[in-house]
């Protein structure tokens, strides 16, 4: 299965909906998308991972890279995820302390620091 990506703007937030598998083969596509958004001036990103079937450390690396980029512009990167198998990877790597993780896109869009 390949990776699917779509974006939508809600106010000053850009929602990136990700579907499929994020691994060493597909992660570069996600990286390109995040870099492109930041280059185009979208600094408040919400990455919706509800359609993600698989995520590995390469994918985590891309998300951390995205966070670094938006933070350079005082932006934010929030995740939407309810899947235990995906959340587990964030927990064992300690990244739950790095990313705000929300249960719905609406909650992530409404959130402020």
């Amino acid at each position: 299965m390949d990776l699917s990506l779509s974006t939508e703007t809600v106010g000053d937030r850009t929602i990136v909906r990700v579907g499929g598998e994020i691994d060493v083969y597909t992660a570069p596509k996600l990286r390109e998308q995040l870099v492109e958004l930041v280059n185009d001036g979208s600094f408040h990103l919400v990455v919706d991972m509800e359609g993600v079937d698989f995520l590995d450390s390469t994918g985590l690396g891309v998300l951390v890279g995205g966070l670094k980029r938006v933070r350079a512009h005082e932006g934010s990167l929030r995740l939407v995820c309810n899947q235990e198998r995906i959340l587990k990877i964030f927990r064992i790597t300690g990244l739950t302390k790095v990313f705000p993780i929300h249960t719905s896109v609406e909650e992530a869009v409404a959130a402020t620091d």
Binding site: S57, T58, L60, I92, T93
Partner: peptide
């Protein structure tokens, strides 16, 4: 770094 993250996982 990515290599180490993979091993950490």
């Amino acid at each position: 770094e990515e290599d180490e993250m993979g091993l950490a996982v």
